[in-house]
């Protein structure tokens, strides 16, 4: 029979990795965020909340927060509405539904760097697919990634293209859990297709919607790869998301104190979002059988 210390031996390796690479780093970030350091100098003088004050006083931080918030709160709802509509068509077990599910899901498992590179070509001014299509219908060339008013929307489009399939797959799983009897009952009551969708489907997949909403917003706040490859945060800071600013502050400018303060703020924002989710979900979502 198992001895008393057996379970500890089984969990210890995983716990050790989590402690070293997740929990201690939180403390390290907190500590570094109240110091001034450039990676090299031998001492790290304590500066109190100076790094936070500098951040909160800077245009750079507020711009970055604004851009990230637009990215998250615009792209996620669009994606979820699209995904639910598509999922309600693709939930059937037919060959055509299967083909489309596969096509939609492929970008999700494709390398983000590849996707970013491919769409850098699609939206490149001189040789890109987007401008070729525009020219074909008689339009003018658009400098998609060089225009501060447009670049963020291009990134939203690219991220939607990448993530849509995941949302669809999750919605399909949610829809499959709704019993057919409910649909039959709604049909007997004489509801049209739209009516059934609004009155039966939408409320019943609410738990799935909340799940997707929360993880998508949290993921959107951490977007980095497509920004780093496609725009570097430019033009003129128009796509300078929080993690891109964090990367620049820490690993290009070597301002470890300010970078750590930014990491702590990002952490605080995401924990707050997660907390709101726990409150909202705890209260509203329990239609499940």
């Amino acid at each position: 029979m198992p001895r008393k210390f057996t379970p500890y031996l089984f969990v210890l390796p995983l716990i050790a990795f989590i402690v070293v690479f997740t929990y201690i780093p939180i403390l390290t970030s907190l500590n570094l965020s109240v110091r001034e350091w450039d990676f090299l100098s031998p001492d790290k003088p304590f500066v109190g909340f100076e790094n936070y004050r500098l951040l909160l006083d800077s245009h750079e931080f507020w711009n970055s927060l604004r851009v990230t918030a637009i990215f998250a709160f615009v792209s996620v709802p669009i994606r979820l509405v699209l995904a639910l509509l598509i999922a309600s068509f693709l939930v059937r077990e037919t060959l055509s539904a299967r083909i489309l599910r596969g096509a939609l899901f492929l970008p999700f498992v494709t390398s983000t760097v590849s996707i970013a590179v491919i769409f850098s070509w699609v939206f490149s001014t001189d040789y890109g697919m987007a401008n070729a299509l525009l020219r074909a219908i008689g339009g003018e060339k658009v400098p998609w990634l060089q225009d501060p008013a447009i670049a963020l929307w291009v990134l939203i489009l690219v991220n939607t293209w990448k993530q849509l399939g995941y949302d669809v797959i999750i919605y399909i799983a949610g829809l499959q859990a709704i019993s057919n009897e409910l649909y039959d009952a709604a049909a007997v009551d004489g509801g049209g297709r739209l009516h059934v969708f609004r009155r039966v489907t939408v409320p019943l997949v609410m738990p799935t919607t909340y799940f997707l909403l929360v993880i998508s917003v949290i993921e959107a706040f951490q977007i980095f790869t497509i920004v780093n490859v496609m725009t570097h945060g430019g033009p003129a800071g128009a796509t300078d998301m929080l993690v891109n600013m964090l990367y620049r502050t820490g690993f290009t400018l070597f301002d470890i104190g300010k970078g750590s303060a930014l990491a702590v703020l990002l952490f605080a924002i995401l924990i707050t979002l997660a907390w709101i989710k726990a409150r909202v979900i705890g209260r509203k979502v329990h239609y499940e059988a």
């Binding site: 070293v20 690479f21 997740t22 201690i24 780093p25 939180i26 390290t28 970030s29 570094l32 949290i218 706040f221 951490q222 980095f224 993690v243 964090l246 990367y247 820490g250 690993f251 470890i256 970078g259 750590s260 990491a263 702590v264 990002l266 952490f267 995401l270 924990i271 997660a274």
Partner: peptide
């Protein structure tokens, strides 16, 4: 699952 991985970016680099 709730902790954003980016908070450990600088510390893990230092470690």
């Amino acid at each position: 699952l709730m902790i954003p991985s980016h908070i450990s970016l600088i510390p893990n680099y230092l470690t």
